[in-house]
Design a protein around this nucleic acid. Structure first.
Lengths: 206, 206
DNA sequence: TAATTTTTCTATAAGTCTATAGACTGCGCG
DNA sequence: CGCGCAGTCTATAGACTTATAGAAAAATTA
């Protein structure tokens, strides 16, 4: 009867992943005990091993859960035929929404994935690289189409977008009051135009 | 004989803080054992308690060590009478140089300070706020002097600078090959002008 | 209801970790 | 020379952790 590994199981497993994500986000991988996770889920410590072979495996699953959709969405953005500004906005929106929307798992991926042994990190590395490469591609397209200046460092640009989004993502996770859409708008504007008033007719420094 | 708490002690204590910083940076606070730190320092586990009352205190000292000078330098930048661009460049330079220059302690401060109990975090909070406020002040000055557009969100701006610098800081710590000054230049340029080719005849920063 | 399977529980082995206590070593100094 | 102290060592108590085994409970099926 475990052919489709019962939907009930799948559902509870999902809850287990979310519980683990919440606890890892709060206490870090090493700071969290399996008792913490089990309690969060409402079961006893030993029972957790019905869902995870080990604590480490739980971390691996949380990380994967945290970036899967997120990479998926980037794939779609990269495929879409939109002008550069729209794609950048979509990227920032997708990235920051992930933090509010569904889970603390993305934070866990960012902060704790390095504690996984190399072998369990391969898949995550692939996904992360895929994300970065697609984003770099967006910048390269923009250079090709003349939307961005020739000779710009697309690798640097992509890393900067990711870094900025993750920085704000952490703040979003930590402060539930923050207006995510306001942040999205401002971050995108900053990345596009910088602090200095690009359009203003009289730009006098000091 | 321990009136000035011997220079020998001070020196070794400093080494202990650096050793702890290195280990915490690599394994995280909870993932690092006192044995790890002692070994890094070249002594035995129990001996570490000659320098730290507890592992937690070690973390507190590492964090403090990590941001003290850094806040100090921001203080100087804020006091200096320079145009906005120069102050921003100085800020980014100071921030990113800290990561390469002397220590992994700044990374530890960023990533692990939340594991300190509230009471041991007060001083750090103060320093962090001081840093952010000075940086905000720089933006406010720039708005007042007309260098930046009226009505800009200075709090957002300061957080963004900090977030961007910390994101690149992590990369700098992780990859010793990175050319820090190149990163400094590009980050500053991005913050000032954004990705889009500013308004006017543009100098080429390759 | 009885049989079977899934899920959770209890108990515990085996190990790790922090922090402390007390002994040892080497150096400076009277 | 030998006292005292700074700094390090060894050994260990006590707490906490992960993971496993087997019993118990709950759900499902016949």
């Amino acid at each position: 009867m475990q052919n489709p590994e019962s939907p009930k199981y799948q559902q509870q497993k999902r809850s287990a992943i979310r519980a683990a994500a919440a606890v890892f986000a709060r206490k870090g991988f090493h700071g969290a005990s399996t008792t913490d996770i089990a309690t969060e889920l409402g079961i006893k410590q030993g029972s957790l091993y019905y869902y995870f072979k080990s604590k480490e495996e739980a971390l691996a699953e949380v990380c994967l859960y945290g970036i899967r959709d997120y990479v998926q969405r980037m794939e779609e953005i990269a495929r879409s035929e939109q002008p550069f500004e729209a794609r950048l906005l979509a990227t920032v929106t997708s990235h920051l929404s992930s933090y509010r929307e569904k889970n603390e798992a993305l934070k866990v991926h960012n902060d704790e994935r390095l504690y996984l042994p190399e072998i369990k990190r391969i898949k995550l590395k692939q996904l992360g690289s895929q994300y970065r490469e697609r984003l770099e591609g967006i910048f390269e397209d923009a250079v090709a189409s003349g939307a961005l200046r020739e000779g710009m460092d697309c690798h640097f640009a992509a890393q900067s977008v990711i870094g900025m989004c993750n920085a704000w993502g952490e703040l979003i996770v930590r402060d539930p009051e923050l207006d995510v859409f306001d942040v999205i708008r401002k971050v995108t504007d900053l990345l596009l135009n910088g602090f200095t008033p690009a359009s203003a007719p009289d730009s006098q420094t000091s």
